[in-house]
């Protein structure tokens, strides 16, 4: 069942990515937000020059964090990562959002949906 409220998803992704980059760069959130057009792999002053290992770490850690927050399985596999490793931060956030909106629920998420639907049904009957 896909998400319909993408703005909520995007806000979560936005916060997770901004927080990760701020921690990585020892910078403030505002500083990262001021540079949303920087590319992940480009060189300064227009990019973070992120090396492959750091990029892999970022994808793994943000996936874990987003999965915990939204209860959805987030799989950013190698082909997806190769496709988006040169994105700007803005474009990367959008791409992750699209990936999540089309993602499947984790078991916890499925349980939550089932419980909610059962509650609704009980209320109706």
């Amino acid at each position: 069942m896909p998400f319909t409220d993408t703005s909520a998803v995007e806000k979560v992704v936005y916060n997770v990515v901004i927080n990760w980059l701020a921690d990585q760069q020892n910078a403030s959130d505002q500083e990262i937000q001021n540079n949303l057009d920087w590319t992940l792999s480009g060189t300064p002053p227009n990019g973070y020059n992120m090396q492959p290992q750091a990029y892999t770490k970022m994808c793994n850690e943000i996936s874990t964090q987003i999965q915990k927050t939204l209860g959805r399985a987030v799989n950013l596999g190698v082909p997806w990562r190769n496709k988006h490793k040169n994105d700007s931060v803005n474009a990367f956030i959008a791409a992750v959002t699209i990936e999540i909106v089309n993602a499947k629920l984790t078991n916890i998420g499925k349980g939550a949906v089932t419980w909610s639907m059962a509650k609704q049904q009980a209320h109706i009957t």
Partner: peptide
């Protein structure tokens, strides 16, 4: 061999 060091200044520019 490039080791998997990801801190700022090595994994990213700083």
């Amino acid at each position: 061999y490039t080791p998997p060091i990801t801190v700022a200044g090595i994994g990213t520019a700083a």
